[in-house]
Design a protein around this nucleic acid. Structure first.
Lengths: 343, 343
DNA sequence: GTTTTCTTGTTAAACGATTAAGCATATATT
DNA sequence: AATATATGCTTAATCGTTTAACAAGAAAAC
């Protein structure tokens, strides 16, 4: 490793103290009353010598790393990848670096990541929390590390969060199916008590209820684990059809569920939307190419990413303790898969 | 911010020097001849006080951040997102943290990211280099910062790299089209001199040449900029059809080109594979859902990610200067879109 | 001609760790 | 008994910055 040039090297070369160099290079000449000419000399030699500040040293001294951690479920999931990209861009606007990490919905991995990032002295966290990670979140809070939850949050915890309005989005989507004439709407969701999933289920249930479609004692909902396979979804759909053979529509709670679900429907020889209409959460390039382009709920990823960063940075710079809780509306993109009277 | 507990706090609490605490907590008791009992006491109080080492301080002292930068074109592109995930996982196996960043194929952004990451004292880089970033790469080399290029590399630069065998993959894919009976095969590529793209073009050209299909003076290739729109691709396809109205197959050079290209083909009312057969590079969930499931080139993302990390870490720990240059084969996944005699 | 006030700098401690070197004391070797 | 070796722990410098506190000469004020 070529010896990197430090502030000391510059000081030596110019013939001044390191303090002066530091002041100049941090644009504190005014406050530190540095002479105009010498300042210029310092700046010139710094450039000449190719000086690059050592952020590690800076961080150690200032206690700020200008870095924050973004923990999602899986960076290879397009939903999170897009969110991450928006977070990255907004962070750059504030001169922050973000460290991504994937926790795979596992509280164990999540705790491990939080530890690693904490040791790296991140200035804050943006987290899509895994199930049963409340204690981890609380401990971040207790340590006064700025935090914004994203995509989901915990009802019982007082935190910042930025989510989409899952309840409304679901309610609208299912209502749309009902208006399109469907009378037996099933739902495929994740088996979890995370609030975003519960809200999506509530939205589904309430839409049915408000439209007097809640006939059966057991709702037409099947859930699968996070590490589900296509077979799991297929089994779920079959069970739903067994439970109510006249099921004529399906509401999928996420993009990954939908992708596997569509393949399952193909396997089962169900035509969309004639046999079974489909509406789902999230986007996917694939939805455009399905023979019956999907009607889907488009989450406000750009706004979610931007806001999460802005709230986090505000929390880092101000040290006030007021929590911002944002629920941003989603948009229903209506296409063919939901059947009749769409425009 | 709650005062974090430092090694000094532990030392004070136990009544020993910080040196002893450091030795114990770094499992250097043997070398440093630390007493057994006191070592246990130190460990216990450390745990009790909830000590978390300050990696920043550690890094400053040791000169190693145990961090490396991964610069790709766009983390929201599934190709890079998947690669990134594999890199992340392999890095974790070595206890390294990775900082992702997107350069959008822009040398300016790339330089900016390299600077930022260098200042953050990353121990190395994995980079999918943008066009015209040779000087940046050279400068990393000159500074003796370990580096592995990925996805593409520069012929004129002696570096580590891990890529897929773009030439072979292209050659095979196009040969497959030829064997399937197609006689006028066009190609849509990016307008760039990056080696991966040139190799893909060479593979295409040579496959044609070797099968005596190179009749026209100007090859049936159209290129678009990195920031292309669907209209650009559509225009390209139209031009190709104008140039040779009997074009019966298209080879797309990347996933994003394909996605827009398929929509363009739909717009142009071209049926796949009857009017125009299609083969493409990269995967996409969408390819499964196209009415004629696509034949595509599956890149070895897992192996590429793993190898890149391994090579980088080897370069970080050993300081030897031998370059590892890996070209890993891709697999052609044959489905319907390429027309006849596929199984 | 002092004293005060600017101007322009320097000194040195600190951030939280690591680690070579040193210093006792105890035990072993001859 | 004298010396060598082991054992157990401390001291203090260092990594590259930041920044409060201080200093010294020049200009201004009286």
């Amino acid at each position: 490793m070529n010896k990197k040039v430090s502030i000391k090297d510059i000081a030596q070369s110019v013939g001044v103290s390191t303090a002066l160099v530091s002041y100049v290079l941090n644009n504190k000449e005014k406050e530190a009353r540095v002479g105009k000419e010498i300042a210029q000399v310092i700046r010139d030699t710094a450039a000449e010598m190719g000086y690059q500040p050592n952020q590690i040293a800076k961080s150690l001294k200032t206690g700020k790393s200008h870095t924050f951690g973004l923990i999602v479920a899986d960076i290879s999931n397009p939903f999170f990848a897009n969110l991450a990209r928006n977070v990255e861009d907004e962070a750059k606007n504030f001169n922050y670096t973000v460290i991504f990490a994937s926790a795979d919905e596992s509280p164990k991995k999540s705790q491990n990541l939080i530890n690693i990032l904490t040791e790296r002295q991140v200035d804050g966290f943006i987290i899509a929390p895994a199930e049963n990670s409340q204690d981890q979140i609380e401990s971040i809070l207790k340590n006064n590390i700025p935090l914004v939850l994203i995509d989901r949050y915990f009802k019982e915890l007082e935190t910042n969060y930025v989510v989409t309005n899952n309840y409304d989005a679901s309610y609208n989507a299912v209502s749309h199916l009902i208006k399109a004439g469907h009378k037996n709407i099933g739902m495929i969701a994740y088996k979890t008590d995370l609030v975003h999933m519960l809200d999506r289920r509530r939205g589904y249930m309430d839409a049915l209820k408000d439209n007097k479609q809640l006939k059966a004692k057991t709702p037409l909902i099947k859930t699968v684990d996070f590490d589900f396979t296509q077979d799991d979804v297929e089994a779920g759909i079959k069970e739903l059809l067994a439970q109510n053979p006249s099921m004529d529509a399906l509401f999928f709670a996420t993009n990954t569920l939908t992708l596997k679900g569509l393949k399952a429907l193909n396997n089962l020889n169900c035509k969309v939307p004639d046999d079974i209409a489909v509406v789902c959460f999230d986007e996917s390039e694939a939805f455009d190419f399905f023979y019956s382009p999907l009607t889907y709920i488009e989450q406000p990823l750009l706004e979610m990413g931007k806001k999460a960063v802005q709230i986090l940075i505000k929390n880092i710079t101000d040290k006030k303790n007021t929590n911002t809780q944002l629920s941003i509306p989603s948009r229903l993109v209506v296409r063919q898969s939901c059947g009749s009277n769409n425009n």
